[in-house]
Simulated scan of single mutants.
Amino acid sequence: MKKIVLFLCFLSASLLIRAASPQSKKPAILVFSKTQGFRHSAIGVGKLAIMKLGKENGFLVDTTENAAYFTPEVLKKYAAVVFLSTTGNILDAAQKASFEKYIQSGGGFVGVHAATDTEYGWPWYGNLVGAYFVSHPAQQEATLNVVDRGNISTKHLPEVWKRKDEWYNFKNINKDLKVLITIDEKSYTGGINGDFHPMAWYHNYDGGRSWYTELGHTEASYTDENYLKHLLGGIQYAIHKK
């Protein structure tokens, strides 16, 4: 028993030392993956991949599906919040107000894939994420055009990027978006947005930074080096690392 007590004391001391170490000065992000609609199987591997990106690139990562995290006291600890394939109505009125204040105070937002299939009745969020999901065809290979390679999230990508994923059609596309990637609807079947069909974008919004990628439905995305660098760049943009 004494050995157990000593071990617990040592563990507690170690945690306190780590909390007070320079590592605790690293920026932190919150990965939020609550779903009230369709749940993507890639959420689990997506969390692990983002945690690995954080470990390798100097930022801390917390993950949760608990909307109670959305209070001013908790959110202020994070440089950015990632909505990882969230779906449906996931925040109550007080939590929405807290998140709005967080962004207005300079917080960062990263939306991944189904973040656009979230909170259709909250116009502020629709403008933040940049568009709302309408529909998608079957998963298939398509041609992406990287129209802005000056951004930290796209500078490593080829101008023409062919990959397989689930391709969303959108409505209520924010006209102020700075588009990074578009999809060529002639390269696959099922697109309805026409010649201008954005797939990834960023913008300043209501005091904060917002970055979104439609890519990331498939579990294979989270072992794809090009995609992971794309996602990492989006996080780095959101936490003001550029």
Rank of each mutant, 00 (worst) to 15 (best):
residue 81 V to S: 04
residue 81 V to H: 02
residue 82 V to H: 05
residue 82 V to D: 01
residue 83 F to L: 12
residue 84 L to K: 08
residue 86 T to L: 02
residue 87 T to Y: 06
residue 91 L to Y: 08
residue 92 D to K: 11
residue 93 A to N: 10
residue 93 A to L: 07
residue 99 F to Q: 04
residue 99 F to G: 05
residue 100 E to W: 01
residue 101 K to D: 11
residue 103 I to E: 01
residue 104 Q to D: 08
residue 106 G to P: 00
residue 107 G to E: 01
residue 110 V to H: 02
residue 110 V to M: 01
residue 110 V to A: 01
residue 110 V to Q: 02
residue 112 V to L: 08
residue 112 V to F: 04
residue 116 T to W: 08
residue 116 T to P: 12
residue 118 T to M: 05
residue 118 T to E: 09
residue 118 T to D: 07
residue 119 E to S: 04
residue 120 Y to S: 03
residue 121 G to I: 07
residue 122 W to N: 02
residue 123 P to S: 12
residue 123 P to E: 14
residue 124 W to K: 00
residue 124 W to T: 05
residue 125 Y to T: 03
residue 126 G to Q: 13
residue 129 V to F: 08
residue 134 V to S: 11
residue 136 H to C: 11
residue 137 P to E: 00
residue 142 A to S: 10
residue 144 L to Y: 14
residue 144 L to F: 15
residue 146 V to R: 01
residue 147 V to E: 05
residue 148 D to W: 03
residue 151 N to R: 06
residue 152 I to T: 06
residue 155 K to W: 09
residue 157 L to A: 03
residue 157 L to G: 10
residue 159 E to P: 13
residue 163 R to P: 00
residue 163 R to K: 13
residue 164 K to C: 13
residue 168 Y to F: 15
residue 170 F to L: 15
residue 170 F to P: 12
residue 170 F to Y: 14
residue 171 K to G: 15
residue 174 N to R: 10
residue 175 K to W: 00
